[in-house]
Design a protein around this nucleic acid. Sequence first.
RNA 1: GCGGGGGUUGCCGAGUCAGGAAAAGGCGCAAGGCUUAAGACCUUGUCCCGUAGGGGUCCGAGGGUUCAAAUCCCUCCCCCCGCACCA
Length: 934
Amino acid sequence: MQLDFREIETKWQKKWEEEGIFQPEPSEKPKFFITIPYPYLNGNLHAGHTRTFTIGDAFARFMRMKGYNVLFPMGFHVTGTPIIGLAELIQKRDENTIRVYSQYHDVPEDVLVKLDTPEKIVEYFSKEALQAMKSIGYSIDWRRIFTTTDETYQKFIEWQFYRLKEMGYVVKGSHPVRYCPNDRNPVEDHDLLHGENATVVDFTVIKFYYEKDGERIILPCATLRPETVFGVTNIWLKPEEYMIVNVNGERWLVSEEAYEKLKYSDKNVEFEREINADELFGRFAVNPVTGKEIPILPADFVDLDNATGVVMSVPAHAPYDYVALQELKDSDYAKKYNLDEILNKIKPIVLIRIEDEEGIPAEKIVKEMGIKSQTDPALEKATKTLYKREFHRGVLLEITGEYEGIKVSQIKEKLQKDLIERGIGDIFYEFSEKPVVCRCGTKCVVKVVKDQWFLSYSDLEWKNKVLKHLENMKIIPDYYKEEFRNKIEWLKDKACARRKGLGTRIPWDSEWLIESLSDSTIYMSYYILAKYVNAGELKAENMTKELLDYVLLGRGRVEEVSKVSGLQTELIERIRRDFVYWYPVDMRSSGKDLVANHLLFFLFHHIAIFPEEYWPKAIAVNGYVSLEGKKMSKSKGPLLTMKRAVSENGADVTRMYILYTSEYDSDADWRRRDVESLSNHLRRFYELIIQNYGDVEGEITTLDKWLISRFQRVVKETTTAMESFQTRRAVNSAFFEMMSDVRWYLRRGGKNLSIIIDDWLKLLSPFIPHLCEELWHLRHDTFISLESYPEYRDDLVDDKAEIAEEYLKKLISDIKEILKFVKAKKVYIALAEEWKYEVLRLIKDEKDVKNAMKKVMEREEFRKMGKDVSAFIKNVLKERSDGTVEEVDEKRVINDNLEFIKRETGVEIELNNEKVPKTKRKVSIPGKPAIYAE
RNA sequence: GCGGGGGUUGCCGAGUCAGGAAAAGGCGCAAGGCUUAAGACCUUGUCCCGUAGGGGUCCGAGGGUUCAAAUCCCUCCCCCCGCACCA
């Protein structure tokens, strides 16, 4: 095939760039500002980017053709640690990295090994990314490109953080992270050998205590169910060595493992002495909540490596505790430590009730499951089952005092807070699963990072503003609005500073770098500035707080700003006008992975910093891309780069495939076979247009009208689909459905395909812009990319023409069906008897057989042939539920198309009532003639 | 566990909101045509039965509402994604 996609594509890309047609400036036209999250450059752009960006570009092109002044910019994100990590791996010649980056990212090995600094990586991949995006034909305004380490960008970020700090949204605090003591670093999922699924859970510590020689020793019981403190009957220790440790001035008794973990908490911890649990069994401790004295007892099920290693026993609600107590009664321990009397006095204390159930819950479930020993693995299940039931349905009883009546599901946080405030509670962080092991082989711990900077997303006022604005936004697909609602409510304060990585320092605390998601929240406004930065008109030293306050917020007086920033007032006003014109963001289109993080922060920060008229209007979310059913992975492969997809298949094929293969948030699968098939479709399309693009000649036939009518429907469907961001539906309609009509048109002998070609090309232009541009220029000198999108025209819809074609299709299909069973040379067709038309006209509006019958039988001529008439009515009502009479000139359609029908069916056709036997004519109805094959 | 989404013909997927002949479109497969030939193109077929355009089955499972259910209601089973400080 002579068609070379790439040749055509590069030709038009060059022309678009030369003419600068995607470089919008403020104008009289309504504006549309669409943005896509800039890519993170620790590798080449891949099929996932291709999907998100192509959807955005198709929409940008669509809106442009719809008459909007469209701004579609792009930047590069390099802030954070992964690029630094990559540089280190390349320095080390890490085998996997070298393999993945040469094999999947298509970086030549000799080039790759030289990328041993973050700067070189950024330089290399930004060039690659730029080329890739140009090669696929995105209609981006490249004058606004930037990188997040640009000095000017950093000024912008500093400004943002000052603003947030002023508003009290940047605060200090501490938070738990997964941490490797050996590497002395927080660890991410991909740094782990085991335990990727482990999350950090916060045990509530309740400070039980005993006193000896005037010294108070705290028994820090760790629990996930603090409310059960009201039902504690005793404390469990494992009969082994413990330690007395000084924690913030208090003496805590904890396991050795717990001591190790406490070292990484935000507490001051100091070892004092060892102590064997032996010494304590049979002695009493005080429950700080109830003031009651309870005994300390031995239990083997206690896990020294879980939280503090000190456990409070709630036999009424904890199956473990219940069984352990039972077992203890007849054990050696009871004798050894003289516990009989104590044990006899212990009675489970019920503090939670589910509806009107009776008895002791733990006892019931243990008996039901037949559990006898504290080492029985079934205890785990019993615990879970009971916990789940009580969590969802349980209510606290009178014994819990002020907490009576509260649902178990709503008590944990409140109680934890109350205990801490009263000085008798604390928090102990622990992994939900163990072990958690770093790639270096070291067991990870939970480290509490102190004096960390936070963005206070949990601020209720802030949250409520975001929630409220969300209701005014368009979210695509719409069910993501609920998702956003939930995520906004769930969002907690976020640590926004790091010790390591690329990025901007916190301006008032230069020890810290601003974390990479926190510096990417309102950068869409920076695109306005970037144009001036790139033109050399705006430099870092000009970007003072006053300037940004003025151009982004309209604050201050321009003369003052001019003085401070060193810029001419004229330029300052121009930047301000640009901002006012382009903002807010009308559409942010993104992959679904960013919903629970970036897109939330995007909303929060816009709402915090800008006045309401500049808050985002809409968010669209799309799914992932897999390769032949396999998940892509940047760091492990497989991966398909944008560059490779384009060079192997062409930009238009790549674009259309990715737009067509799935919709909304459902995932797309890149399949070579399907891509190649699509490539053939486009070649066919190209040939088709080349062969049929000409002047419209002769009279417009019914068939032509049919084509135009069908096309109108496609225009409507495609437009509706695009307006709701459904590219799959749009491509399906604009290309495939139309193609199938066009094939029928040509098969029917249509000669004037050109009637629709101009508009058809326009319709397809957002999806396959290069091919459309090429074909358009066969007869035009303008850029199709700047033409107007076809408008649906109701007056061109021709129902009669469409019904006639349907009639013909159905007739041919019926004849073929019959010929399957009867070998014949000639087929006679007879229209339905005249009286049937008459009857049909009479009962047009009747749906009910009875009424229809009544109405018809009022006429004498029909009464005479009562049986035939009633059979017909039943038949026709069954066939056509709407009972309409189709307005087709059947005789004419058949006679005009005798040759065509013959060609399609392979037999002679004759419209001849006489030749068709009466029995066959009997079943005919208007619109469905009798057929007789001979 | 919590939250969000989903289960339709060999596969991918429309149809579900607004109940009314299930299966648009793509892929794959098959047959015929075109061609020196083809992985190219055109046409047809692709749940089952049928020597007359017809009949039957069918939408994860099971109930219910209705003249009528893939669609509405209830119960259950299964799958995917997120639960963070990481881009």
